[in-house]
């Protein structure tokens, strides 16, 4: 089963390497990692998506918790939470296909953020499955490159992850 973990860490050099190193050495199945600053200047928040059964998940959480720079880990999986990912997709767009693509973009509520004679860049925010679906549809037009941020997640309601 897939689990989404919110990992709050000290904003210090080397923390990300430490975490990714630990994950790869212990051979945990990580689907994505996304890191960024938070409301507190000295805290970084890392969203980790891991494919694990109960026992494996316990190991991931306990091993990560052991790192001195890891402040708190919250499993957002079962919770009422918002899950999002951002993707930028560069797709071939000729005069003939352009309007079709614009239609698709509309349906997905995506955005066109760059256009030139041969290509378009589409921006989409949403759940992973939605991004997968758009990529699938655009595939026929010829995707040149894709970049995805990896999932980030936030619980609904007033309580922050550090207090959950």
């Amino acid at each position: 089963m897939k689990h989404t973990l919110a990992v709050l860490v000290e904003n210090r050099p080397g923390v990300l390497t430490h975490i990714s190193g630990l994950i790869s050495r212990r051979a945990f199945n990580i689907e994505s990692i996304a890191a960024g600053y938070t409301e507190e200047a000295d805290t970084t928040r890392i969203t980790v998506v891991v494919e694990a059964d109960e026992i494996e998940l316990e190991q991931v959480v306990n091993q990560l918790s052991k790192l001195v720079d890891v402040i708190k880990i919250t499993d957002l999986t079962g919770m009422d939470a918002i899950h999002r990912e951002l993707a930028l997709i560069k797709v071939k767009a000729s005069v003939e296909t352009r309007s079709d693509i614009v239609d698709i973009v509309d349906i997905f509520r995506a955005k066109i953020v760059d256009v030139n004679r041969e290509t378009m860049v589409i921006e989409l925010t949403g759940e992973e499955t939605k991004i997968d679906a758009l990529c699938e549809v655009l595939h026929d037009y010829g995707i040149i490159e894709i970049v995805r941020t990896g999932k980030i997640a936030l619980s609904r309601g007033p309580i922050p992850a550090k207090e959950l």
Binding site: G14, G21, L67, V68
Partner: peptide
């Protein structure tokens, strides 16, 4: 040495 010893220390500093 920080990078090298990261997986074999409880913690490390530069």
């Amino acid at each position: 040495i920080r990078g090298i010893t990261t997986p074999i220390t409880k913690h490390n500093y530069l």
